[in-house]
Amino acid sequence: MNMANKNDKSRRRFLQKLGIAGASTVAGSALLLQGCSDSNKASGNKVKVLTADNKLVEVDVAHLKPGDKIQDLKYLQKRGREGIPGKKFVMVVDLAKCKNARKCMKACQSAHQLKPEMHHLNVLEMEDPVKKTSYWMPKTCQHCDNPPCVSVCPVDATFKRQDGIVLIDNERCIGCRFCVAACPYSARTFNWTEPKNSDKMADVTYDMELNVPQKKGTVTKCAFSADQLRHGKLPYCVSACPNGVYYFGDQNEDLVTNGTTKKTVRLSHLLEENAAYTLMPELGTQPSVYYLPPRESEG
């Protein structure tokens, strides 16, 4: 009995020691882990950052890592497909103010790596056969709510997003040019040759919101400068105009901002008071670009 007790005691002691050793190992590793995470301790300096789902959050500087997402094609493709929730972008072009300065075209071509003969946006001279007068009309992709180009794309390369923007993904585009044929506004253009500065852009990750780098054998089109809109900035063409031709904004807010004066006005009032129209409404494409008619100059 005594022996048995002694044995029992020693076994118990052994188990106790084992338990202590185990507990101390767990505690030690926990401390070690704690030590590791201490290197990531909050510094107290907070910054505001925008998350992928468009939420403004405040994080500590110490918790930030250098962003490599912007170089990640998969992330850029996902972001480009989804668009900006809660927005519906519209453009208003005041034809009475256009003086063919072509600053918009230059800004567009330099942002989207386009050769001088390629246009996402083109300023056309329109002639009025009755009055024998002419006016300038900037013409861009109309970002239709019922886009014929999207219907005909066989590979889902061109698509419409939740914020109303029609984009093209040149990673998917096979160069069939069905969309070019389907667009009633001739808004699309094709990279027949190697794009401008293609050697310099070789290592740049493709961002469909900017549609850069351009690729030979693919279609390219106006993107409403979706990359700028993501940062709350106006499109390249809109902010480059010296004559106050372009208004740009969110239809959901019913507010549009003039690219030159930065004056923000009600979209519905602007359209109603100036007898705005859309191009080829009879086709039922429902464009997101409105035109304010050219007015005869006073005197």
């Binding site: 904004g249 969110d250 807010e253 923000t264 009600r266």
Partner: peptide, 10 residues
């Protein structure tokens, strides 16, 4: 002013 996406509306 009402704050819009790209500017403020008086």
């Amino acid at each position: 002013y009402v704050m819009g996406t790209f500017g403020k509306h008086l």
